[in-house]
Amino acid sequence: MTTTIERQSEQSPSITPVNAAARRPRKFRIRSLGGTLGLIAVGLVFLVPFYWMLSSAFKPEAEIYQWPLQWIPSTITFDHFARAWEAVPFGQFFVNSVIVTAAGSTLKVLLAVFSAHAFAFLRFPGKKFVFFAVLGALMVPGHVTLLINYITIGNLGLLNTYAGIFLPGLASAFGTFLLRQHFLSLPKEVLEAAELDGCGHLRRLIHFVLPMSKPAVVTVALIAVIDEWNDFIWPLLVTNTLQARTLPIGLMFLKETEGVDQWGPIMAGTSLVILPMLLLFLLAQRYIVDGLAGAAVRR
């Protein structure tokens, strides 16, 4: 009886596993195709306006308003950039943005690194409560503190100064949280070995923690640079002269100077503001995923 059952089981084809195996590649291809089409659709939503901005910056004036739309410029012209540069002091705006972004982002990253190192490796009373307060700061909208910051900067006499623009935003709760989570994921054996060799906190941070945390630090630095470069509301409030204002505010003055119907110079000015951050993002994008993934640690 047993022999007969074994022979029947050997002779009967296994239909279910074969059919399941045949269905899986088909389902996988359908899902992969759907995901690809979705990504293409989302990409077009962002790329089409960006391409139109760049092409309008280099098109002749008549082709911007032409119907049907002229997607590819017939000739390349730089007149819009010249008009935008002459209409408002873009040179001064660019220098102001570079100085504010360099100083503000550098100090913001340094404060985030040192505070994250303290939360990750040092012991002090009320450590958890202070860290919870930092997390609470992530939930507070920045516009809530505009009035208090303006009064403080005004009392310090820092209106229309570079320091007045970047000082209120130096404390980065997000950067502190991201770096602290990444520091906790570092191998303890390496840090303990460094401590046994006589490394203090500063030396251990510089020679061991930061080299192993390069993706996270670059991610925080990139976010800080983009925030400082694109900030509009606070520089508009704390400055009231053209010589102290930054590029995003310069775009507003360009629109008021040229008028809302002069899209050539406006698109050229917008390209001047966007392209530096776009190039920086493209150069540093390989660190972003590693930096954000390395912060996915629960302690």
Rank of each mutant, 00 (worst) to 15 (best):
M1F: 11
T3E: 13
I5T: 13
E10C: 07
P13D: 13
R24G: 00
F28W: 06
R29P: 05
R31A: 14
L33A: 14
L33F: 09
L37G: 10
L37P: 06
G38H: 07
V45R: 02
V48Y: 07
W52S: 14
W52F: 08
M53G: 07
L54A: 15
K59L: 08
E61D: 05
Q66E: 15
Q66D: 14
P68D: 09
F78K: 06
D79H: 04
R83T: 06
R83F: 02
E86C: 00
V88R: 01
P89Y: 11
A102I: 15
K108R: 14
H117R: 10
A118E: 09
P125F: 05
F129W: 06
F129K: 07
A133E: 10
A133I: 06
A133N: 08
L138S: 05
P141I: 02
V144H: 09
T145L: 15
L146A: 12
L147A: 13
N149R: 10
T152F: 14
I153P: 06
L158Q: 07
L159P: 01
L159D: 04
L167D: 10
P168L: 09
S172C: 14
T176C: 05
T176Y: 01
L179V: 02
L186R: 05
K188I: 12
L191K: 01
E192S: 12
A194D: 15
A194V: 13
L196D: 14
L196F: 12
L196G: 13
L196N: 12
H201C: 03
M212P: 00
V217P: 09
V225F: 01
F232I: 00
I233A: 10
W234Q: 10
W234M: 10
W234K: 07
A244S: 08
T246E: 09
P248T: 01
M252C: 00
G259W: 11
V260L: 14
A268S: 05
A268G: 04
T270V: 07
I274T: 08
L278A: 15
R286L: 03
V289G: 00
D290L: 15
D290G: 13
A293C: 12
A296D: 11
